[in-house]
Structure formats: C-alpha cells, structure tokens
Design a protein around this nucleic acid. Structure first.
Lengths: 222, 222
DNA sequence: GTCTATATTATGATAGAC
DNA sequence: GTCTATCATAATATAGAC
C-alpha cells in the first residue's frame, strides 16, 4: 500500500460523521426538551436542565436552536408531526369502514398516543393558562386543523344517532380530555386509586369506555 | 374634657388594626399565589412575581409563610377548603333527593366551581407531571377523600343502571376531567372554536351535556 | 409589621479557543 | 461542531434598620 497522491485528493464533502452527530444531538435535545417542558412548563424549565437531561453542554442549545423559544417550537412541532402521523395511519387503516368504526379507531389511536406522549396534553394545559404568542402559534399551526377535522366526523355520528346530541365542539372536547387529561393525570390516578394506566389492557379498557359512553348508538343497516 | 390620668392607662391589647392588615396581606398573597402558580407552575413562579401581583413587598412572603413551599401549600389548602364547602352546600341542598338528582347537582356545582377557579385543575396537572412530595401531600390531604366519596356515589348509580357499566374509578375520572380539564383549556377552546365558556348559559350547557352523557339512565319508580 | 440592602445561587445568552 | 469562560440579569432567602 502506498499513500494516495496529494493531487488526487479532491476536496471531499464535509465528513458525514459530523452531520450525523449533529442530527443525533438535535434529537436528544428535542426529547429532553419535551420531557422538561411538560414537567415544569416553559418558564419553569431552564435550558441548562434540558442540556443536562440530553447529556449535552448547554451552549449547544443556542447553536442548534438559536434560543429557548425556538427550541420549544421545534419540540412542539415534532410532537404534533408524530401525532398527526399516528392519527393518519389509524384513519387509513379504516378507510372503507363505517363512521363509528373509523371514530373508534381514532379514539384508540389517540389514547395510545397520549399514553406514550403525555406531553401532548400537559403542554396544552400549561400554555392555555394565559394568552401568549406561544398559545396563538400552537392553536393556529397545530390544533385548529386537527380540531376542525374531528368535529366534522363527530357531527356525522350525531346525525346518525351514534353520538349523543348537543354542541358538537363541546362533545369533541369532552372526548378529547377524557383520554388526554386522564392520562396526563395518571400519576395522581395511581395515587388515589392504585390503578396504573400503564398496565397491559388498561389503555384499551379506557378506550372502550370512551367509545361506549360517547358513541352509544349503533349504525342502522339499510 | 381633660386628660385621662396616666395611672388608669392599663396596658391595652396589641392594636387590632395591624392584625387586620396582616390578614388582608395574607389573603392578597394567597390569591396572587394561586393565580401565579396556576399560570406558570411551581418552578416557573417566582416569589417576587407573586408579591408584585399582590402589591406587596417580597420579603413579606418569608414573613407570613416562611418560604415558597409553605406558601404553595397554604394556597392549595385554601382552594380545596373552598371547593369542599361548595360541594357540601350542593349536597346538602339535595339531601332527600334521589341519587341521580344528587349527582347531577354535584356535577353542576363542580362545573361552576371549576370555571371560577380553574387553578383547581391546572395545579393538579402540573403537579402530576412527576413524583414529588407536593404531589403526595396533595393526594393524601385533599384529593383521595374527595375521590373515594365520589366513587361510592357513582357506584350506586351504576348499580341502578343510571351510569354506564365499567370500572367506576375510570368513569369518575372521565366525568371529572370533562369539566375540570375542559375549563382549564377554555382559552384554547376559544381559539379553536370561537366558543367562550364564560358566556352566560355555557356552563349549564356543559353540565347538562356531562349529565346526559354520563348518567343516561333513569331511576325506575317502585 | 414593614422596609432596604444584600448574600448566594441559577438562568439565558454569547464570545472565542479548539 | 464542541467546549470553557464569562456577562448580565433574576431568583430565593435573610439580616437588620425602622
């Protein structure tokens, strides 16, 4: 073996190793940020704490995300992108089914996603505590589209007599918090009743109960 | 008129004015603390911010409550004392009525209380984010007693066929979050749907919907 | 009971070496 | 891309004057 001639050393692209490390660092920071923000809220979370959780030096947050606010937005973007994908997958699997089966599948998907990522609901409650730019951004960018689509589906179920009558938006929010808020309170629930929602079967039990309470009717065959 | 003889100047009790001012200061601090803690969580709230909201100098917090933690406990004590009183009043008014009417009255009372004091739910979600001494204290001191009593009442309604079957504790928590969490998210709800839960009639609409969804059955006359 | 002043630590953000 | 060092600010808490 001999050295490669210097002249043939054409300028290579920047080493891919570093790019990969950069991506991993960003992912670690985003995971840590979601955990920290959902535990302590935006104000209650320090960027140092996020960096510590991620096992990363804190100035790297500035490097990768400019500031605390941008990091928060990136973390929330990530969670909603995942969540939308989970819902879309559930909806796709039920493409040809009847509306009640579709909605049931969506409720199941929501319960399971909310259990794996309680930050989804916690961050919402935290930000809805008072008017803020973050809340406006959250609603406009992520929540309203989801909300509008879900309300349309439930309205159909009400017309079919499957879901109970009354204000559709109110009904949707009752369904939503029955899974999201209940799972966000799972530690409290464990403490008061001894029930661990993360034991096998519990999540399906919750989903079944939500379905039987909020979608009590049956679709009549023609 | 003449001066009272010096000898008759028996030592008076400490001036009551100051005691009254002290009580008012404590009340102002407790109100401000509830507001601040529910907006920004325990870690996200500074004692200076609480003092500012109360219009009081910050070292007075140390004077009246020893430290931030004791102030938090005093504020939570206050909210649960009020809440228990509101529930007790509603229960008392329905003393002789049937179980469904009793539970309906309790749900109405809960909805109205949660609307006036959304901190009740917000603080719970914040503290349930991770194990802590504050969470343990909250559960043992305030939540479990309420929880146990409510679950007993709902169990009766399930046996009567008024409430849907299934795990009673799960059902109770669904009812609870349908009012508490929904009202804690009222700003978000306003943003997504344009509905203001604080308009007249909205709270009763929510309570009626909770009752019709979770207590759909009727009590049969003997 | 109330205030000013301050000790100590934590925080967000940046500059500049490597 | 990563690290150390550092700045300016804000936090909890206390000491001591009034």
């Amino acid at each position: 073996m001999h050295k490669r001639p210097a002249l043939s050393a054409i300028p290579e692209k920047p080493p891919r190793k570093q790019q990969q490390r950069s991506i991993r660092t960003k992912q670690k920071l985003l995971n840590a940020a979601l955990e920290a923000f959902s535990e302590n809220g935006f104000k209650g979370t320090s960027t140092r704490n996020i960096a510590d959780r991620a096992g990363v030096h804190h100035p790297l947050i500035t490097y990768h995300f400019r500031n605390k606010d941008e990091l928060w937005r990136a973390a929330v973007d990530r969670i909603f992108t995942e969540f939308n994908a989970a819902l879309a997958a559930a909806a796709k699997a039920q493409a040809g089914e009847c509306p009640k089966a579709r909605m049931s599948a969506l409720i199941r998907a929501y319960v399971h996603y909310a259990a794996g990522q309680p930050a989804l609901h916690k961050i919402m409650v935290q930000e809805a505590s008072r008017p803020s730019q973050r809340l406006d951004w959250l609603i406009d960018t992520h929540i309203r589209p989801l909300f509008d689509a879900a309300v349309e589906e439930i309205k159909v179920l009400q017309e079919l007599g499957v879901a109970p009558p009354g204000d559709t938006k109110l009904l949707f929010n009752m369904i939503r918090v029955s899974s999201g808020a209940l799972l966000a309170l799972s530690l409290e629930f464990k403490g008061t009743s001894g029930i661990d929602m993360y034991q096998p079967g519990r999540l399906d039990e919750l989903a079944d109960m939500i379905i039987s309470v909020f979608l009590p009717g049956d679709i009549e065959e023609e």
